[in-house]
Simulated assay, not measured.
Amino acid sequence: MTSLLIADDHPLFRAALRLAASESLPECELKEAADLAAVFDALQAAPDIDLVLLDLHMPGSHGLSGLAALRGQYPGVAVLVVSAHDEPQVIRRVLDHGAAGFIPKSASPGEIGEAIQQVLNGGHWLPPHLAEAVAALPADRTDTDLASRLARLTEQQYRVLTLLAQGMLNKQIADRLNIQERTVKAHVTAIFEKLKVRNRTQAGMLLKSLELGEPGRLA
Rank of each mutant, 00 (worst) to 15 (best):
V184Y: 10
E23A: 13
I173D: 01
T162D: 11
D55L: 00
V184G: 11
P88W: 02
D143L: 03
K31N: 10
S24P: 03
V94L: 02
S106N: 11
M205E: 15
G110C: 10
R176S: 14
D9G: 04
A84Y: 04
A135C: 12
L54D: 00
L70Y: 02
A131L: 10
E23K: 14
A69T: 07
A99N: 01
K208V: 06
D86V: 04
P138I: 09
V134R: 08
G110A: 13
T183L: 11
G113R: 09
A84Q: 09
A68E: 00
P215I: 01
G63I: 01
A16L: 10
R198P: 00
A78P: 02
S106D: 07
L146R: 04
K196N: 13
G213R: 11
T201K: 14
P215S: 05
A15E: 09
N121S: 13
V188N: 10
L4G: 04
G122K: 12
G98F: 01
Q180D: 15
L212P: 02
A69K: 09
D41N: 14
G216A: 11
V79Y: 02
V52C: 03
A115E: 00
G60S: 09
R93Q: 09
S83I: 03
I173F: 06
R182H: 15
L56C: 05
G123E: 05
Q156C: 10
A34C: 10
M1D: 09
Q118D: 06
P59D: 07
L70N: 01
L80R: 02
D8H: 06
T144Y: 07
I103W: 01
F102H: 05
L164R: 09
H187M: 08
G101E: 00
Q44T: 15
E111S: 12
S3Y: 07
L177P: 05
G213H: 11
K185N: 15
I191K: 11
K31I: 07
H85Q: 03
A131S: 14
Q118F: 06
P104W: 03
P127Q: 08
A38N: 04
T162M: 12
Q44F: 12
D8N: 08
A34V: 12
D35A: 11
E27P: 04
L36G: 02
L4Q: 04
Q89M: 13
R217Y: 13
I191N: 06
G123W: 06
L80I: 01
